[in-house]
Computed example of a mutant assay.
Amino acid sequence: MSPGRRERHARVALVALGLVTVVDLICLVFGSGLGHALAKPLLMPLLAAHVGLRDGPRLLVAALLFGWGGDVLLLFDVDAAFLAGMSSFAAGHVCYLVLFKRHAFLGHDGENGAPRVRAAWPAAGYGVALVTTVALLWPDLPPELRVPVAGYSVLLTAMAYRATRLGLTAALGGALFMLSDTLIATGVAEWPQLPRPDFWIMATYIAAQLLLARGVLDAAGRAAPKALVAN
């Protein structure tokens, strides 16, 4: 396929993602469980198709497809499916962590040490958020889910923090992913919820995945010219 056609197809996939996102969120607003069940499984494959057509890293495609696996599994309201879905998302976070290490921009590795000091602030903030959230949720989570949720939270927080190394776009994506999953966890713990909680969970989740993908694609694009110069 020619580069021009690939770019056109990539745009089509992104527009389709936007349309399916609107349909999914409208279904959640109006309480259409069937519409949500039909739209949700289409989201991450469309984003993965966009990334693939843009020649994005294979690990990014894998991360999105692991997200798709989690999306599908969380449609089933049973503990086994919840744990399997959480495991699928965890695998996606591992993919993101490897990508962030591979494409981290140079600004945080300056010789004078100042960038490292600035980088310590998000680490401290995410560390406090992790400990506080797990400590507050722990008593209200079902006993069989406490350890898995805590372990997943560590991995999620690491992903969100490492996303800050790619710049503002990826950093915002990581933060929104953490917010989305925290909203899910508060629901599992049976805390008071916002009206239409699934709407907020999906809105923040879709935005998170889109921003993370955009951040990785931008970082990979910056790295390509450097690789050509090095060769």
Results as ranks from 00 to 15, higher is better:
Leu19Ser: 09
Leu19Gly: 05
Val20Arg: 02
Thr21Ile: 00
Val22Trp: 06
Val22Ile: 13
Val22Arg: 03
Val23Ala: 15
Asp24Glu: 14
Leu25Tyr: 05
Ile26Gln: 12
Leu28Cys: 00
Leu28Asn: 05
Val29Gly: 05
Val29Trp: 15
Val29Ser: 14
Phe30Glu: 12
Phe30Lys: 11
Phe30Met: 11
Ser32Gln: 12
Ser32Ala: 10
Leu34Asp: 08
Leu34Ile: 11
Leu34Thr: 13
Gly35Val: 00
Ala37Leu: 12
Ala39Asp: 07
Lys40Glu: 03
Lys40Asn: 11
Pro41Val: 06
Pro41His: 07
Leu43Val: 15
Leu46Asn: 01
Leu47His: 08
Ala48Leu: 04
Ala48Val: 03
Ala48Asn: 02
His50Gln: 07
His50Ser: 08
His50Met: 10
His50Glu: 09
Arg54Val: 00
Arg54Ile: 01
Asp55Tyr: 05
Asp55Phe: 07
Asp55Ser: 10
Pro57Ile: 06
Pro57Leu: 05
Pro57His: 07
Arg58Gly: 15
Arg58Gln: 14
Arg58Met: 13
Leu60Phe: 03
Leu60Trp: 05
Leu60Gln: 05
Val61Tyr: 04
Val61Ile: 13
Ala62Phe: 13
Ala63Asp: 03
Leu64Gly: 01
Leu64Gln: 01
Leu64Cys: 06
Phe66Val: 01
Gly67Asp: 09
Gly67Glu: 08
Trp68Met: 12
Gly69Val: 06
Gly69Ala: 11
Gly69Lys: 09
Gly70Pro: 05
Gly70Cys: 03
Asp71Ala: 07
Leu73Trp: 03
Leu75Gly: 15
Phe76Gly: 04
Val78Ala: 11
Ala80Leu: 15
Ala80Arg: 14
Ala80Val: 15
Ala80Ser: 15
Ala81Leu: 10
Ala81Ile: 11
Phe82Arg: 10
Phe82Asp: 03
Leu83Phe: 10
Gly85Thr: 13
Gly85Ser: 06
